[in-house]
Nucleic acid binder design. Structure first.
Lengths: 246, 246
DNA sequence: CGATATTTGTACGTATGTATT
DNA sequence: TAATACATACGTACAAATATC
């Protein structure tokens, strides 16, 4: 367990303005992620943590509540607070994933995340092929025109790529899928950073062609084809991430 | 906006023990779900809510925090708190879904939920066919034996059915999929209750046969077949829910 | 642009209730 | 029953962001 806690104004010159409960949250979270606080063991009591961190119980309670809401802790009324195993963690929570990225403990979920991403994108393409409105299709077409434009920079192309997949989800007309996308977007960003990879320049032409094929499938109302092309597209992208050290 | 709030000890004889912040949460949530508080309008200030509900700001803040975490409110530091539209709502949150069930405003997400359920179950079956261990397969087999046993009651059969799908997710060996299942389980229960349907007795034989085919596909490592059978299975179950008044 | 008022955010201390051991 | 530990709620003070004059 961490002995001390970085004060909110550790460097008087700068302005970190770290909130106390966030500092406590992070200190405890890191200890859990790294195994310093082992699964099943009891967290010190509220009052013990108050004295250890030198803060009020309000702060401790807020930190514990957040830790509990991401599944790191199991709070039992009257009995104590216990450390959960990784099976209990909310592996879709961006805050937790970010911390796992920072502590180098994110490896064991990367393959799981790729599964989810694939499932998600394939479903969006399939549903879009069934339900896209003329407006949806027009928006996708406009995007593809810009992607094919030789004047667009590499950076712009990456952004357009993301936007294309966003429009696809919108064209699926499923609100829950859109919510899941929001969660996954942050998570995948963390993952990409953890592996410090960028889109290969050479892939640009291939990628645009893939997107064109997906759009064609949607326009022709062929869900099976949309599904197959998206699957191939995603699996191509996965190759740049998979089979690296975990 | 609700004028008063059910006090925690409304009936001295019984022991409702309703928490104040939950009561406030619910009162405001209902007003938002039913449109009494329209999208984009401002929620009264903390202090105004304190006097209106007759509670401390601690209670109001806790309620607002929960409302914000399920996407019903948008809290802007220094500017005020505003009502979010349904596009912002976290439609996978069990607490919110439960409330939507109670207020009769859940209809517009049922079809979305069925999409998600189908996507989810099909993916689990496909992955299970790729990754199930001998232990996974033995557990599934044991479950099927009990399902075929004529001595199992109808109620038991429903429970075994749920357990089968749970084991399937476990056999997918994807932790995030398991977390999603937890969320969906509560949601689907609410949905079923909202439509007050139970499994048809006549479907029992068909259902067991379907499960057997899924297990066979997994044992034979045929993901495509597992995917197809599960799709048919889920779509069969959907027929008992779809095409009802929303 | 600047000063001020408003509104939300953070933190403290205290008191009391409730569940577990 | 008693002790322990978490839960809820109140009131207060000040900080920070925003809006308004």
């Amino acid at each position: 367990m961490t002995q001390t806690l970085t004060p909110p104004d550790a460097t008087p010159g700068t302005r970190p303005k770290r909130k106390l409960y966030e500092a406590v949250f992070e200190a405890i979270a890191v200890d859990i992620l790294q195994g310093t606080l082992p699964t099943g063991s009891a967290l010190p009591t509220d009052s013990a943590l108050c004295t250890r961190f030198g803060v009020s119980r309000t702060v401790i309670r807020e930190a514990i509540q957040h830790l509990s809401s991401v599944g790191l802790l199991d709070v039992r009324h009257g009995a104590g607070t216990y450390i959960n195993g990784s099976r209990q963690w909310d592996l879709l929570d961006p805050q937790l994933l970010t911390m796992m990225g920072r502590t180098g403990t994110i490896g064991f979920v990367i393959d799981d995340l790729l599964d989810i991403r694939r499932m998600f994108e394939v479903e969006a393409a399939t549903l879009a092929a069934k339900r896209a409105t003329p407006d949806d299709i027009r928006a996708l077409e406009a995007l593809l025109v810009r992607m094919r434009d030789p004047a667009t920079t590499e950076q712009e192309h990456v952004a357009l790529n993301l936007e294309f997949h966003g429009l696809l989800v919108q064209a699926s007309h499923n609100r829950i899928l859109q919510g899941l996308r929001e969660q996954l977007r942050g998570v995948l960003t963390v993952m990409m950073n953890a592996r410090h990879r960028q889109a290969d320049a050479e892939m640009r032409t291939v990628s645009t062609a893939m997107h064109q094929m997906i759009l064609d499938s949607i326009r022709e109302r062929r869900p099976d084809r949309a599904q197959a092309v998206m699957l191939a597209h995603i699996q191509g992208a996965e190759r740049s991430l998979q089979h690296e050290p975990r």
